[in-house]
């Protein structure tokens, strides 16, 4: 007897859960040869609003987690992704129309990127922050603080490496993110969501909305509870070694005065 296919329903990732789009809308994605690949949820304005709510409620806990803890969580994401390496390779290969070997290189680079940023979790503050010399009996510190809720668009071509490169620096610095992955190649993003859901990332820290960035991003841009927008994705070279600049972009440096000897 032949086995009945178990077909996957791809959904959004909001507040640690996998809801369908509130609108009930879906869209088709195809592989590089225009063959049907899957139906994806098409995010709506209300999904965007729900994602902002989820992100906002996650910020308080995530931004005050210790740097060490955030680093451990990011490293855990890399571990869980490693366990699903074969699945990622086949999905990237299908979506982008590249060979398994090339897809494997992308996936490995994406996993390594989590590890790279995990290492920075308890170090970026030393590099971006400072102890400033002042002419008085005070300590004066420059302290990098998380910006809050960030809405980001991931690169439209690099389905996994680009997405990880966008998300990792935002969350390692203690922010929560609402990210729109590649709209034509979104499947690896949802698999990444499944990794995030099982790697101790608190619910709401990463929210993934599949769909049309041109439709959803304006709503996120005008939402008063979104603290930062990241539209850098299309212009960046994601193969290049990352630098501190993306982490610096998502922190605000506060100056703190404290009397000496108290």
């Amino acid at each position: 007897m032949s086995r009945v296919d178990v077909r996957k329903t791809h959904k959004l990732f909001i507040g640690g859960a996998f809801p369908r789009s509130e609108s009930g809308r879906t869209y088709e994605v195809t592989d590089s040869k225009d063959q049907f690949l899957a139906n994806m949820a098409l995010a709506s304005r209300k999904d965007a609003r729900d994602a902002v709510l989820a992100a906002r409620s996650a910020v308080a806990k995530w931004s005050t987690a210790t740097a060490y803890n955030r680093g451990q969580v990011l490293y855990r994401i890399a571990e869980v992704m490693e366990g699903r390496r074969e699945q990622f390779i086949s999905e990237v290969s299908d979506s982008e129309g590249v060979s398994s070997r090339k897809a494997g290189a992308h996936v490995d680079a994406a996993i390594d990127r989590w590890v790279w940023y995990a290492g920075w979790a308890d170090k970026y503050a030393q590099v971006i922050g400072n102890t400033n010399p002042v002419a008085g009996p005070f300590f004066n510190f420059s302290v990098p603080e998380p910006t809050g809720v960030v809405a980001a668009v991931a690169p439209q071509d690099a389905s996994i490496l680009g997405l990880v490169s966008v998300v990792a620096p935002i969350i390692v610095t203690g922010n929560a993110v609402i990210v729109m992955p590649s709209s034509s190649r979104p499947i690896p993003a949802i698999t990444l969501a499944e990794c995030l859901a099982t790697s101790d990332v608190p619910a709401g820290v990463v929210n993934i909305l599949t769909g049309a960035p041109a439709e959803v991003m304006p709503w996120l841009a005008e939402h008063a509870d979104v603290n930062a927008l990241d539209g850098a994705a299309p212009h960046a070279d994601w193969q290049a070694t990352p630098s501190l600049s993306r982490m610096r972009a998502f922190v605000e440096v506060k100056t703190v005065w404290h009397p000496m000897g108290v």
Partner: peptide, 14 residues
């Protein structure tokens, strides 16, 4: 109410 007035979502900062 602010959303109705301003046409975009507001937030707890406001």
């Amino acid at each position: 109410r602010q959303r109705m007035r301003d046409g975009h979502y507001s937030g707890p900062d406001y």
